[in-house]
Design a protein around this nucleic acid. Structure first.
Length: 288
DNA sequence: CACTTGACCTGTCCGC
DNA sequence: TGCGGACAGGTCAAGT
């Protein structure tokens, strides 16, 4: 469930904790978590390189190295990138940690760093991955090059509108989840954004006015900006680079709130299935 | 081409 | 208490 706010929170932690560190060794415990193949550097190839930048595109994390390669990572649903060092190391200590000693049984990769520290890639369900790719190739990877604009970029609205226009018959929720149309939104923030502008998730896009669509894009930006300030959403697994939970779900209006009163009208929030996903909405505020 | 469904995985929860 | 099955959801391949 890491969506844009969670990935951005991890990115900020990595920028603070591992940029400037050198990779001294890499232990891969689950081969599929660090795929190798044409154009990909095997794990041993990053040993000796220094991490020089931590970037993000939508839900994709990018750690640039000083050897012309970048570590590109996707956390998918249960991935974590957690930094650990000596006990007295670093300014931030976990205050709401979800994790114990690392590595644990979900640890797939251990990047050993200088200064006696580690960057652990944990992933209970093994859907996530980390790949080493030539830095100039990162933006050209098909799945990155085809991403739609991010809601945090207000100037991206016309492009979002243009791309969305090709999907007028599908539900507005499915469109929000389509990373080629608009990127960075996942199940949590799709539901939260739709509640904010009182649009029913199952509405065909054709029934959503241009004005509503603009409000929706803005709402997605607002809700994700707030979530970043709160360190993201922790439903089950998500933690930041220090192992801490995010606090956004305490402020959620619909996600995982089925049966509880709508914060606007008091009606019980309903959970259904739209676009093959669990979907939460207020049946009164968000009529079809 | 637009759109939906299934697969990838494992841990958790629910009903029997 | 144990056990089968549903469920969780990001993305892509395969299906309609």
């Amino acid at each position: 469930m890491p969506e844009l706010p969670e990935v951005e929170t991890v990115r900020r932690g990595l920028e603070r904790l591992v940029v400037g560190r050198r990779i001294t060794a890499v232990d891969v415990f689950e081969a599929k978590s660090f795929p190798v193949g044409p154009g990909l550097l095997p794990p041993a190839g990053v040993v000796g390189a220094r991490i020089v930048a931590a970037r993000r595109r939508a839900k994709v994390l990018i750690l640039d190295l000083d050897n012309e390669y970048s570590l590109v990572g996707h956390l998918k649903m249960t991935g974590q990138l957690v930094v650990r060092g000596p006990e007295d190391w670093g300014a931030g200590h976990p205050t709401d940690s979800l994790l114990g000693e690392l590595p644990d049984r979900s640890t797939r990769i251990d990047f050993r760093l200088d200064a006696d520290s580690h960057l652990f890639f944990n992933d209970q369900r093994k859907f996530g991955w980390v790949k080493a790719i030539p830095t100039p190739m990162v933006e050209q990877l098909p799945f990155i090059a085809s991403l739609g604009p991010e809601p945090l970029d207000a100037a991206g609205f016309p492009e979002f509108q243009r791309r969305a226009a090709r999907h007028r018959r599908t539900t507005v929720k499915a469109v929000l989840l389509n990373q080629q149309v608009v990127s960075g939104i996942g199940n949590i923030y799709a539901d939260e954004s739709l509640w904010a502008v009182r649009v029913n998730p199952a509405r065909p896009l054709a029934e959503v006015s241009d004005r509503k669509l603009r409000q929706l894009f803005q709402a997605a930006s607002d809700v994700m900006t707030l979530s970043i300030e709160l360190g993201g959403s922790t439903d089950r697994n998500y933690v930041d680079a220090e192992g801490n939970r995010g606090a956004y779900l305490g402020f959620a209006n619909v996600f995982r709130r089925q049966g509880q009163p709508c914060h606007r009208c008091g009606t019980a929030i309903v959970k259904t299935k739209v676009a093959g996903r669990g979907t939460h909405y207020c049946p009164r505020c968000q009529r079809r």
